[in-house]
Design a binder for these strands. Structure first.
Length: 468
RNA sequence: GCCGGUGUAGCUCAGCGGUAGAGCAGCGGCCUUUUAAGCCGAUGGUCCGGGGUUCGAAUCCCCGCGCCGGCACCA
């Protein structure tokens, strides 16, 4: 029953391991037992050994990363969630049969082990086995320990291997989790409630992007995967929830590159009775909290630049920025185009770029002193957009007009113009309190705070083409 | 979609017209304090896939696929 299926045998090493598996089963050893209890993690053993010198008996469990040593003594580092601890097996202690069994273990096997713990002569905290148990036989060889796994394609396609052997990779995803937790804690403490809104939508609104489309068979209609979280959340502000946020996945059917993934995570939050400036303050607090959670202090190094995240961030008018470059005070789509081409790529330190032309922002409130612009601001760092905030448009009459303008842009050839959302207008017609809204690109934030150049390196399972 | 790079043993890589290589891992033997790496020995390959040129192709040419980078797209 353990004869190797042919797709299995790439190396011969797998054959060897399968033979060991058979031998174990014949000897009555279950190579995949259902459970095992440990009482210490690797890190706990290490700190107890440091503190107490000698620890009576501990039970640890994890993955065997190597085996070395000689003759009657074998050393084997074991890795668990907390780190590594060395196992020491001595023939004189465990007996001939058990010692041979230990020597038969392979790199990559999951093992449970018990024994007293103390340092070796070389000072390495170790568990001196009195017994061990195989918890899962590993059939595939792990990448070499010294050079590790470098091949990026394998790292993405087989993230589990990457996580086993690359501590830096584990670190990135640990930090990602901590960053998101910190953001949640901050918003929760501010009285926001976390909500979940539909991923499948009839009208993919809240942004300008090509959506993925799908079809619901029972409902017999087409649906889109959301491209933004905005419109459902604002309906909740109409509903009186006053402070809501969602951290969720967006989907955009566009090109993939170092900073764009077809599915990516954003935070959006909406707050009644505040405005753009309130949301910019919140943005600064979110970035500060995230940086602290990532342990980067407030001055991470990113792509060769030291980024200064100490608030307040600079606030600059788009019109002024473009005028500095071109000598011309532009408006409308011409302004937005010049800004994106000439100004944005050159902004390195965190900068809130404010006063977007109304044409590019169909969901933001107009400035009272100049209705050609809206109360909107994007946070730019290193030439990239990290956050987008505005004073929300709450006037249903104006909102209807904006949607109509978008329809006009669409018929003029702008594919990604914002679709008309009649129900959203209806919601505004009930009355929405004056509010501020904010969106933050979580993946990019994690990239910044973990020093990763590619969005793929902060997404556990990035989309790749089909493996042949 | 376009341009460039790249794909060789489980991993990391060399080889770039003339019998497919190294280190590590794995396998067999010896070894009771190791920290990538003890010693000896024997192994291990659809050189990404398919065509072609050539006496001979991992190597040159064509087509295709994956990955990486850039551009386009992403206001």
């Amino acid at each position: 029953m353990d004869s190797p299926p042919d797709h299995f045998d790439a190396s011969g090493e797998m054959r060897d391991r399968l033979e060991k598996l058979s031998a174990l089963r014949q000897a009555g050893v279950e190579p995949y037992p259902p459970r095992f209890s440990r009482d210490h993690t690797a890190a706990q053993v290490r700190s107890r050994v440091e503190a107490e010198g000698q620890v009576e008996r501990v039970t640890v469990a994890g993955r065997l990363l190597a085996k070395r040593g000689s003759g009657g003594m074998t050393f084997a580092p074991l890795q668990d969630r907390s780190g590594q601890i060395q196992l020491v097996a001595q023939r004189d202690v465990v007996g001939e049969a058990a010692y041979a069994g230990f020597a038969d273990l392979d790199r990559g096997d999951i093992v449970g082990a018990s024994g007293p713990a103390r340092k070796t002569r070389r000072g390495e905290p170790s568990v001196w086995l009195d017994s061990f148990r195989l918890l899962a036989k590993s059939l595939r060889p792990l990448p070499e320990k010294w050079h590790g796994l470098k091949d990026v394609e394998t790292r993405y396609r087989q993230r589990y291997v990457d996580l086993i052997v690359n501590a830096e990779s584990r670190e990135v995803f640990l930090k990602r989790s901590r960053i998101i937790s910190a953001v949640r804690r901050l918003l929760d403490a501010d009285g926001y409630i976390e909500v979940e809104t539909p991923t499948l939508q009839e009208i993919p609104g809240g942004g300008h992007a090509r959506p993925f489309s799908t079809h619901h068979n029972a409902l017999q209609h087409d649906l889109y995967l959301r491209i933004a979280l905005e419109l459902p959340l604002k309906r909740l502000i109409v509903g009186g929830l006053e402070r809501v946020y969602e951290i969720g996945r967006n989907f955009r059917n566009e090109g993939i590159d170092r900073t764009h993934s077809p599915e990516f995570t954003t935070l959006e939050c909406y707050h009644a009775f505040t405005d753009l400036s309130g949301m910019l303050d919140l943005t600064e607090r979110i970035f500060t909290a995230a940086a602290e959670a990532a342990g980067t202090e407030l001055e991470p190094e990113y792509e060769g630049e030291r980024i200064d995240l100490r608030p307040p961030f600079q606030r600059r008018s788009m019109v002024d920025l473009v005028a500095e470059q071109t000598g011309r005070r532009l408006t409308g789509l011409e302004l937005a185009g010049a800004y994106e081409e000439l100004v944005e790529p050159g902004i390195v330190q965190p900068t809130f770029v404010t006063d977007y032309p109304v044409e590019t922002s169909p969901l933001a409130r107009r400035r009272e002193d100049d209705p050609r612009f809206v109360e909107r601001s994007e946070l730019i760092i290193g030439g990239r957009e990290y956050a987008n905030a505005f004073t929300e448009l709450t006037d249903p009459i104006d909102q209807r007009q904006r949607f109509e303008d978008q329809l006009a842009q669409k018929s003029a050839g702008f594919e990604e113009a914002h679709p008309f959302d009649e129900d959203f207008v209806r919601a505004l017609e009930y009355g929405m309190p004056p509010s501020g809204g904010l969106g933050v690109g979580i993946d990019r934030l994690v990239m910044l705070l973990t020093g990763q150049a590619a969005i793929r390196d902060v997404i556990l399972f990035p989309q790749l083409k089909k493996e042949q």
